[in-house]
Design a protein around this nucleic acid. Structure first.
Length: 546
RNA sequence: GGGGGUGUAGCUCAGUGGUAGAGCACCGGCCUUUUAAGCCGUAGGUCCUGGGUUCGAGUCCCAGCACCCUCACCA
């Protein structure tokens, strides 16, 4: 068969050779393993000289990332979740186990017991006296220097991406840390975490096309939620006064660097609050995520970039070094790092320095509209003129929809630094309370960073009659993607009395993008949606059907 | 859906209409302090798929597929 099978056959032969030696190639429980990071920090106070071995014994496990076998001595670079560590193995110390070393391949998962020392060149090394095979790998890992760069393969085989590219693994660790920090913040503020239905008989709470599915026993069609909003508000009625959900939402829309059909939001509701309180919640959640992760990662990345620039400068000259520095945004990382030293929340995204330090500017939708569109949003003729200029379809849309189309076209991409855009046109906000001084506006804000909507919040509408009227009213020009879908039980809940409240949703994937300098949402979602790979046979089957 | 780009060995990538290339990985040999180990010798290919032009196509043209970027839609 193919090449792949040749590699696999060779590795299977080695696996069988291990079995012949009485070694189980798939290991067992391997207790009391030290992380490589633990070995590094434990070795520091020992002040080991090059060539010296300590009395310190350690047990380490991980995947073979590099393999250098020379006659009767071998050096293996072992990678675990915390970094790399070198194993030193010699025939004289291992005795008959040495034969097993010859059956090892790049990518195998092994464990070892030994003493910590340094080689003559000063490399921290575990001198192994007992070797344990934990999992024989039957497939060759990607190229050891470049890792896996084929984007398609990286997503399809994320498990390979993760072990071959440590930076990728770090981003997902950061993601986990950030979500944990946000949870801790909300719980400390008295919020209750809940889980509400993903399968919903009526979809609502956002403007998007849903995925549909079917429940067999009940014989009903269901929608995958586009938002948890209407259920969380029911919980406000029920007396859970501070409530949040880390919610996977599903929207049957396009895929882009900023959109995945399933994505994660943290959505929260707070009784007796309003949208201004929600602005503080955004600032504090982002601060919590920043302190938990980005604050330490930015200086570390800067150090890595500077190290590489130095190396290139020495080995390939100034030109290569300058190109690398530019490509990796050295200057932005320098600025962000010095900002952090001064106590600011400065990060880097797409080569730009972003300053998340609260408070974020609070700007009015109408003012931004006027500034960037050059026309007042109440001047509908002017807005239509501007819309035509921008090639925006005008017919069949009511004024507020058109205004917002123009806003999205001219304003959003210019909002680079973190900012709150306040007081949206009421007609496109059916779930939001009206502005007390201007009923054409709604008490809604969206948070923007780097031209991207990061969060959306309201002073919640709690008048059941106004709510019912808003949901019955079809907003012309929104098409299928409208928030105005009637949910009678939701209105009934409001009729029991929902306390005045502020509500907020923050896009977690986008927040992680911003705080990890990841240009695509697919870089922060472990398994982004992709067209399934079809095999040749299925391919032919499909062609045959056409 | 529109526009642009990419697709060649397991991986990372060169390739100028005339016998398919490199580095790493793999296999064999030497090697007890290596650092992307080194040296020597092998093996490995549906050049994404299908048409077309041509004496001859990895290369030029057309169509399709997958992925990336971008615009539109959306968060």
């Amino acid at each position: 068969m193919g090449e792949e099978d040749r590699f696999k056959t060779q590795r299977i032969a080695k696996r069988d050779a291990l079995v012949q030696m009485g070694i189980d190639p798939y290991g067992h429980r391997f207790p009391d393993v030290w992380a490589t990071e633990a070995v590094r920090s434990a070795s520091e106070p020992l002040q080991l000289e090059p060539g010296q071995r300590s009395e310190l014994r350690a047990r380490v496990a991980g995947r073979i990332a590099l393999l250098r076998v020379m006659g009767k001595l071998a050096f293996l670079t072992i990678r675990d979740g915390t970094g790399d560590l070198q194993f030193g193995l010699s025939k004289s110390e291992l005795g008959e186990t040495w034969a097993a070393v010859k059956q090892l391949d790049l990518g195998d998962v092994i464990g070892a017991d030994g003493v910590v020392g340094r080689t003559r060149t000063g490399e921290l090394t575990l001198w192994v006296d007992r070797l344990t095979v934990l999992a024989k790998s039957l497939r060759p890992p990607p190229e050891k220097w470049h890792g896996l760069t084929d984007v398609d393969l990286r997503y399809r085989q994320r498990y390979v991406d993760l072990f071959a590219n440590p930076d990728v693994r770090d981003v997902f660790r950061q993601r986990s840390t950030m979500i944990q920090a946000i949870r801790t913040y909300l719980v400390d503020e008295g919020y209750c975490e809940v889980e509400t239905p993903v399968l919903q008989p009526i979809y609502g709470g956002a403007a998007a096309r849903p995925f549909t599915t079917h429940h067999n026993t009940l014989d009903i069609d269901l929608f995958l939620r586009i938002s948890p909003e209407l259920y969380l508000k029911r919980l406000l009625v029920g007396g859970i006064e501070r409530v949040f959900e880390v919610s996977r939402n599903f929207r049957n829309e396009g895929i882009s660097t900023r959109h995945n059909p399933e994505f994660t939001m943290v959505e929260l509701y707070e009784a007796y609050a309003d949208y201004e309180v929600m602005m503080e919640r955004v600032e504090q959640m982002v601060s919590a995520a920043f302190h938990a992760s980005t604050e330490t990662v930015i200086p570390r990345r800067l150090a890595k970039i500077e190290f590489e620039v130095d190396r290139l400068d020495k080995e390939q000259g100034a030109e290569a070094a300058t190109a690398f520095a530019k490509e990796h945004h050295l200057e932005a990382y320098r600025q962000a790092t010095s900002g952090i030293k001064e106590g600011r929340l400065t990060g880097v995204f797409n080569g730009e320095v972003l300053d998340f330090t609260p408070p974020w500017p609070r700007l009015r939708y109408a003012a931004l509209f006027h500034e960037h569109a050059g026309v007042d949003m109440t001047d509908i003729d002017g807005v239509r003129h501007k819309a035509r200029e921008l090639d925006i379809e005008c017919s069949g849309k009511e004024d507020a929809v058109l205004v917002n189309d123009v806003f999205e076209a001219v304003v959003e991409r210019r909002l680079i630094q973190p900012v709150f855009v306040c007081d949206y046109p009421a007609a496109i906000c059916p779930l939001t309370r009206r502005h007390p001084e201007d009923s054409s506006l709604a008490l809604r804000f969206e948070a923007f960073v780097s031209g991207m909507e990061l969060g959306n919040a309201y002073t919640e509408l709690n008048d059941p009659e106004v709510q019912e009227a808003n949901l019955r009213r079809k907003v012309v020009g929104e098409g299928d993607e409208t928030m105005a879908v009637m949910d009678e039980d939701f209105v009934t809940a409001l009729e029991y009395g929902m306390p005045p409240a502020g509500g907020l949703g923050v896009g977690i994937d986008r927040l992680v993008m911003l705080l990890t300098d990841s240009p695509s949402i697919r870089d922060v979602i472990l398994f982004p949606l992709q067209r399934p790979k079809v095999t040749g046979a299925i391919d032919g089957f499909i062609e045959g059907k056409e």
